[in-house]
């Protein structure tokens, strides 16, 4: 279980997130929506321990973000908004590079399988020659090498073809359903959000997304 209780974030005097509270259960996919600049990335960064909240507390299972940052980090798979891979390497070299530095060991066949699971089948291909969708898949695969329990994905499907988008979505669904992972991810694609998410967190003042999703019959929490 991930518990977020009364979380706030200010940059200087400017409040970005205010009194956010919600919980995520094992196997649940949570969508995070809001207009640009609403604070989606900031919230994901805080949940990923990359930034600290101004107020409030967060806990994952028995671990609290205050005290157990190091241990919590081992449980987190964070997929950055900007693609974070070595573009001079092949898919294989990228996977092996990050496996060597990862918290959990995986052999080559396991790494290859991880890529195949999300239909990334260009094992020996240099990243330079991959399509945008393939790069996004690799960006995701690298974040999952250490089998994290909590997946935080910042716009994992932005700007890629529909087929790759579907494949990533299906992969996330399987991860939640079979592996009982907790998944929080942001997207501007409301059809995708509607298909994938069990619940939606809507942040920001603009009621546009909230109304849209309510009309789709989604369970929406807004802050």
């Amino acid at each position: 279980m991930l518990h977020i209780n009364n979380l706030s974030k200010k940059f200087g005097k400017k409040p970005i997130l205010q009194s956010i509270s919600f919980s995520v259960r094992q196997g649940e996919i949570i969508g995070l929506v809001g207009e640009n600049g609403a604070g989606k990335s900031t919230l994901l960064n805080i949940l990923a321990t990359i930034q600290k909240p101004s107020d409030g507390n967060i806990s994952l299972n028995e671990l609290t973000y205050e005290k157990d940052r190091k241990d919590i980090r081992k449980q987190i798979g964070f997929v950055p908004q900007d693609i974070a891979i070595w573009d001079e390497f092949t898919v294989e070299e990228n996977m092996i590079f990050f496996e060597k530095l990862a918290w959990r060991r995986k052999d080559k066949s396991e790494l290859k399988q991880l890529c195949l699971d999300m239909e990334l089948n260009k094992w020996g291909e240099p990243v330079k020659r991959l399509s945008g969708g393939m790069k996004r898949k690799l960006n995701l695969a690298i974040s999952l090498i250490h089998d994290p329990e909590l997946l935080l994905l910042d716009e994992p499907t932005v700007g890629i073809d529909l087929k790759s988008r579907k494949e990533i979505g299906n992969y996330l669904k399987r991860q939640a359903f079979h592996q009982k992972k907790l998944i929080i991810y942001t997207s501007h694609d409301m059809d995708e959000i509607n298909n994938l998410c069990d619940r939606v967190i809507c942040i920001g003042d603009d009621p546009f997304y909230k109304n849209l999703l309510m009309d789709m019959g989604k369970d929406v929490i807004s802050f």
């Binding site: 990923a48 990359i50 081992k74 987190i76 950055p80 974070a84 530095l101 990862a102 994290p148």
Partner: peptide, 19 residues
């Protein structure tokens, strides 16, 4: 020294500077 890669190092065994 790539900005985009920095977040990765939070979730691996070596911090960015240790790397």
């Amino acid at each position: 020294n790539r900005k985009s890669l920095i977040p990765r190092f939070t979730f691996i065994r070596f911090s960015y500077k240790n790397y």
